[in-house]
Amino acid sequence: MNSDTLIETKNLSVGFPVGGKLFNKRVLKAVNEVSLSIPRGSFFGVVGESGSGKTTFGRALLNAAPITGGTAHYDDGEVNYDLGELAGADLKEYRRRAQLIFQDPYAALSPRMTVRDIIAEPLEVMGLCDTREEVDERVREIAGLCRLNLEHLRRFPHAFSGGQRQRISIARALVSKPRFVVADESVAALDVSIQADILNLLKSLQDEMGLTYLFISHDLSVVAHTCDHVAVMYLGQIMESAPTRQLFNSPRHPYTKALFSAIPSLDPDDRGKAQKLEGEIPSPTNRPSGCQFHTRCPFATDLCRREEPHLETCEAGHAVTCHRWRELQLAD
């Protein structure tokens, strides 16, 4: 494992049993043999439609979904863990080092707790502070970093707007001083005017606290502006993974290309120019043969229907899962 890699997965799979108790027992593979490495200090984006397995992937890295195949290693320079084997004290320590910011700030905060108690709860649960004064000190410090007004700490969540609530839930995630943070659709429920504010806050906190983010989103334009590396998921697999600029300037996978062109342009004269993707993402219990994307791909051939492509490196840091990446000219 490379010394500047925080998390490395090799053929990581997450499966859930579905169907009858005795017969027809099947496994739904939400994440299917994903190999990725997340560099320390990166803002790593994962994009995909709903049902692509991006949330399950994030949860598996937090040890909140069962790893059923492959491995995931975590190494922040101080400790290193095999995430599939975590238990006991190591698991507790990993919980402190890896945190999650949720999507919906209206559902993620208990309406019966004050903001101070919400932010302090992780410290108390993990026993990180000995005295109440120490807890208050830490809460005030993180609240300041997240641009929360100190007089807000005595109030209840209902008094706050969506943007303020999201800042509270960021403060709660960061109060235990984690190294790795999974932000699962953390701006999807916010208005555009507030969204930019939260993204800028996440960026500045990254510099101040030395964080590594796994930023899960369905919105490519948000990902393009915040992440330095992006992985595109489809039906539990990585379709393409590249540094952000490279992915946007020269996408190699037809799915990536289609996702870009589906974003509504702000130019009213661009109407109807988008290249449309037909159909919908298939159910993971009923996977297509061959390439997972062939049912919607405009370039699919017999080979695509028959044989499954593997993640191949096409340039440094840029990998793609497509039989035809060499011949297709996708960049415009």
Partner: peptide
């Protein structure tokens, strides 16, 4: 405030404050 794909260098400008 809208993230634009054709200019990735443009910083995101939130509307300051809360509604």
């Amino acid at each position: 405030a809208l993230p634009q794909l054709d200019d990735l260098d443009k910083p995101l400008m939130p509307v300051p404050g809360d509604i």
